[in-house]
Structures are given as structure tokens and as C-alpha cells.
Amino acid sequence: MKYCAFLRGVNVKGTNMKMADVCQVFKEAGMLDVNSVLASGNIIFSSEKNAAELKKMLEKAMSDHFSYEAFLFIKSQDETQVFWNSIPFEKNEALHIYAFVGNPGVENVLMSEFEAASKTENEKAEIVEEILYWQVPKGNTLDSSFGKVLGKKSLKDQFTSRNINTFEKILKKMSS
């Protein structure tokens, strides 16, 4: 089965790694057809194992190899397609749209945080297919009240986020 592993915290705040090295770790862990998409920690691969087994195995391999606490979220090709197919917002050049990949139920935790946060004009969030989507004006991602919540240590093992354009690139590579 084809999967994408979405790594959290890669190439931010001093956790720097080359995607070629990450791919090598995946290959050494027995994954097949390993490729990366962008430098933000999106690894496409094939395996006969299930997502839960893969998560445990690959987090350990990454943690051991790079000497950091790895968090990753594994989605099948079909599951990854849902992220692209369910976008609730219109594309707009002035806005970013992010989708959150994470543990079951984390979308509700994030929505509570979003509802409690102060918002800028055109900033909104919506849950579709158990996925939280967040729209924010370009340039405000890290400055927004909700953007600051996303860095909470208590949530670090719960989710990661990607710009929706990243899902398009991942799906193109998964289909080729």
C-alpha cells in the first residue's frame, strides 16, 4: 500500500535534516519506493504493514537516527486524497489554507483553541471529514493568535499541519 508520512517539526527550530537522509532511514526500516516531497518532511513510501505499526516503527527509527523525539502521522493514498478533496474554502491569492494531520479527535481540540483565539479579518476554521482546515491571511500565519497555539508543547505529539498546496504535490507524486 502507498502511504505518506507527515513529519512534525522538521527543518524548524534547529531540527534540520536532509530529506535524502530521512529517505535513507525509511529504506533501512524496510520501506519501498521511498521519495520525499518538499523539505518539510513529507515522505511517500510503500509497505504491507498497517499505519499504526508503521508509525511506531518509523518514529523509533527517526528518533534513533537523528537523536530527537520524532512525531509522524501516516496516511494512505486514499486518506491523503480526502485532505485535498474536502477543502471548504475558496482558493484566494491573499490567503493561506492549512489542513491538520493528526491523531483521531485532535480536530476538535484544535477547533476549541481556534474558537478561543482572537482572529484577523478573513481568518476562519472548519472541520470537514474529521479534518480541521484553517484559512489565514498570508503573512499572518505565525503572528495570529491561533498560530501561536499551534506551537504548544502539550500538542506536539498530536498533529502537524500542511498548506493545502502541499497535498496537491504529494498526491501528484503518489500517483506517478
Rank of each mutant, 00 (worst) to 15 (best):
K75M: 06
L132C: 07
S161Y: 10
M111E: 11
K169S: 14
I131G: 03
N108G: 08
S76E: 01
P88K: 12
E115V: 08
N140H: 12
I164E: 03
F73D: 03
M19N: 05
E113V: 04
D157I: 00
R8V: 05
N35F: 11
K169Q: 10
D157N: 15
A94G: 05
N11G: 10
A39I: 05
F167K: 05
V136S: 01
T160I: 11
G147W: 02
L155M: 11
S145V: 08
G9Q: 07
S161K: 02
E28D: 14
K55D: 03
L155S: 07
D78A: 15
W134D: 10
G30N: 05
I127L: 09
I44M: 06
M31F: 00
V22K: 02
T166Q: 12
A61L: 02
E59V: 03
G102R: 06
Q135W: 02
F114H: 02
M31H: 05
P104D: 13
K2C: 01
V10A: 10
A70L: 05
K75T: 04
T141H: 04
I43K: 06
F89Y: 11
I87N: 07
F71M: 07
N11W: 06
K49P: 00
K56R: 13
G147Y: 07
E115Q: 14
Y3F: 15
N11R: 08
F89N: 06
T120S: 08
N16R: 12
W84K: 12
P88C: 11
P137I: 10
N42I: 06
A52D: 14
Y3E: 09
Y133A: 05
Y3Q: 06
S63P: 07
V25L: 08
K60D: 09
L171G: 09
T80M: 14
N92D: 15
S67P: 00
K172S: 11
L171P: 01
S86R: 08
M1A: 12
F26P: 01
N108D: 14
E93N: 13
M1D: 04
I44H: 00
G9N: 07
G14N: 04
V22Q: 01
V12E: 02
E79S: 01
T120Y: 10
P137D: 08
